[in-house]
């Protein structure tokens, strides 16, 4: 049977844009362009490479939980070469936190069916880097996360995790949840052919009731955490910038001494 790979991708506000909070202290998505989280492109890339290594004996589904515009992220992933897409979209999802997102994703994964889940290392907006571990916990399958190298063979996933104290070689049986880092290899650009083909690929839409979830379990009301306050950090007071005229290093040393660093 062919390997069922599901890649979880997030639609995020562009990090180079001027991101801010809406009145209800959720991320304001109106003023900043959205895109497929760059860190999830690495996940799509690894899924494509796993499929190629299996001589095409795999089907890649991209899955997102997000607003209407999140379709753009799915299209991008489809144009890179994924086969089909699933979009969980529901007005009641507004303001869902990581625990809620992982709940919805877990239900959607069970609905779609999977042998291998591939996630990014963190989303570029919230950036908690917790959803893959939460998915493994909820689904009750092995967690093989933060891989800089990944391979699937004979019903097993293996990979290298470069941690703080050591580099580890990991191994687990499928089904499993994998996350990959930006060290796993550059993501491909969609080809013109890929972009055209993506337009014809199926995108399934699901809402909360399709997944057997209640509105109270998710969204801002169902959230497990609450942001009470968000304040824009005062711009750093303009510092001194000098041009090096041959004494730049010494001037810098003088500054550091004044600050008691030397």
């Amino acid at each position: 049977m062919s390997l069922r790979i599901v890649v979880t991708v997030k639609y995020v506000p562009d990090a180079t844009g001027d991101r801010h909070f809406a009145e209800d202290l959720t991320v304001d998505r109106d003023d900043v362009d959205g895109l497929l989280s760059e860190l999830d492109e690495y996940a799509v890339e690894q899924a494509l490479q796993i499929k190629e290594a299996a001589d095409g004996e795999a089907e890649i589904t991209v899955l997102t939980v997000g607003p209407e515009d999140a379709k753009d992220a799915l299209r991008k992933a489809l144009s890179m070469g994924a086969d089909k897409a699933v979009h969980v979209e529901d007005d009641d999802l507004h303001g869902t936190d990581a625990l809620g997102t992982s709940l919805v994703l877990a239900k959607a994964l069970e609905h779609v069916g999977y042998d291998l889940v591939v996630s990014g290392m963190a989303s570029t907006d919230g950036g908690m880097g917790v959803v893959p571990a939460m998915l493994a916990e909820r689904l009750g399958v092995p967690q093989v996360t933060l891989l800089s190298e990944v391979k699937v063979e004979d019903g097993k996933v293996t990979g290298r995790r470069d941690g703080d104290a050591a580099s580890e070689q990991l191994e687990a049986s499928l089904p499993a949840v994998v996350s990959v880092t930006d060290q796993s290899g550059e993501a491909r650009y969609p080809s013109f052919k890929g972009i055209m083909a993506a337009k014809k690929k199926p995108v399934e839409s699901l809402d909360l009731s399709d997944l057997g979830l209640e509105a109270e379990e998710v969204g801002l009301e169902g959230a497990w955490t609450k942001v009470d306050e968000a304040t824009e950090r005062p711009a750093r007071t303009a510092g001194t910038v000098v041009k090096d005229e041959g004494e730049g290093g010494k001037q810098l040393a003088e500054f550091l001494a004044g600050q008691k660093f030397i």
């Binding site: 510092g239 001194t240 910038v241 090096d244 730049g248 810098l252 550091l256 600050q259």
Partner: peptide, 21 residues
């Protein structure tokens, strides 16, 4: 962002700073 910045070639400025430190 800086509290103090030097516009210059790091190959000049950094070794001079190291010596001074």
């Amino acid at each position: 962002l800086v509290d103090y910045g030097v516009v210059g070639d790091l190959f000049e400025v950094v070794p001079q700073l190291t010596d001074e430190v």
